[in-house]
Amino acid sequence: MEDLFTNEIVRAENLKKTFTLSRKQQRLEKTAQTRKVAVDGLSFSANRGEIYGLLGPNGAGKTTTLRMLSTLIRPDEGDAYIMGHSVRKEPQKVRDCVGFLTGELKLETFFTPDYLFDFFGAMHGVEREALAVRKHELFSRFGIDAFSQVKVGDLSTGMKQKVSLVISIVHDPDVVIFDEPTNGLDVLTAKVVTDFLAELKRMGKSVLLSTHIFSLVEKLCDRVGIIIDGKMAEEGSLAAVCGERSLEEKFFELYRGIKGEIV
């Protein structure tokens, strides 16, 4: 049974996003169409203090959805509300209460993690003392202390990912949106990240993450939305979506239903 007292913190209503393809993209996608519907009428809601997982194969539209929620791009149709703020009408307010992690947002390789943490803290208007406390906390938690004075350009992929993660939540946002947070991480670091997500939940934060890893969803998420071809194929609490089967079995069943046999 779903808890009737949890309130909705993220609500997406009929989100739609169409991209215009350039010649080059047409060639890459092997299509003659000039437009690509990436997200096609997506609706879902996530609750306060829960972890919501968006699950879908490559190109399903997960990243595009999360980019719309974090106001990087605008939906063509529909709207989404984060803590009651519309991503269309109040993007600045949404940006203040959201922390977004995705591969597209890069850190300047010239600077050190220490400098960038302070810089983005200032960008979010975090007080100096609060920032110092938070830096100490997060840097020791993720083992960034050891390389906090090394230029980002000289860090390994995993180290960079940790720094990006920590900086995305520098302002202690209520809603954390992570796009494939364990991508490129070894099992040890991946565990640090998943443990941290669970802790965020314990602290009352709301987490929205995208992934194509079934086990991650099963282990962490309270609710799950399965996206296929830009549409929500199934949404609900993990138990309600899976029923008796494993998440993987449920996914293939849905996939076969929509796309026919798997090639």
Binding site: S70, L72, K93, R95, D96, K106, L107, T109, F120, M123
Partner: peptide
Amino acid sequence: GEKERGTLSTILATSVK
């Protein structure tokens, strides 16, 4: 340069004017 390398987007994701 910052636009090409994607570091400008990171700043755009914050609420700074």
